[in-house]
């Protein structure tokens, strides 16, 4: 049952929907400063877009398009990036995760915080997307 849905309508519709969902997820991550949502909400929507393809189109396609290993790597990179941003502000002489002390090409303090929030949101999004897809792949079970 998992892997390919025997019905062209479902396959075509999900192929059309999935990129839109992922795009919306990326929008939510990037737009977290102004609109509702951020890394968590956006990351979840991106992950669900990938999983939608996993359960409708043939596995050979969806696995090549977004390999299970990429999901695990994304999750790791997300968490590491978050920790690293904190460490950077420690190195720059401030408190852990105090983005304002990180010297970012002449940006003022509020601008640095703004950028820091963006980086952290992207990191959270990566981690959430990666963990979700890994969970799904592991539960389906035949990804290796």
């Amino acid at each position: 049952m998992i892997g390919e849905y025997r019905g062209q309508v479902v396959q075509v519709v999900s192929v059309l929907m999935a990129p839109l969902m992922m795009m919306f997820g990326l929008y939510v991550i990037a737009h977290g400063h102004y609109g509702p949502g951020g890394g968590f909400a956006g990351g979840i929507v991106v992950g669900v877009g990938v999983i939608l393809l996993r359960i409708t189109v043939p596995r050979s396609v969806s696995m090549r398009w977004f390999p299970p290993a990429a999901a695990r790597v994304a999750a790791g990179i997300g968490v590491l990036a978050f920790i690293l941003v904190g460490a950077l502000s420690l190195v720059a002489g401030g408190a852990y995760l105090d983005y304002a002390v990180i010297d970012a090409a002449g940006a003022t303090e509020p601008e640095r915080r703004y950028l820091g929030i963006l980086v952290v949101e992207i990191a959270v999004g990566l981690a959430v997307t990666g963990v979700m897809i890994s969970l799904f792949d592991t539960l389906v079970g035949d990804d290796h």
Binding site: G32, H33, Y34, G35, P36, G38, G39, F82, I83, G86, Y96, L97, Y99, E109, P110, E111, R113, Y114, G116, I117, V120, E121, V124
Partner: peptide
């Protein structure tokens, strides 16, 4: 302080970013 109109995001990702981590 953060140029972020969405207070929830500012709290989650800046003021309380350690909790989010």
């Amino acid at each position: 302080e953060t140029l972020t109109p969405n207070v929830v995001t500012a709290v989650l990702a800046d003021y309380r970013s350690l909790d989010t981590l």
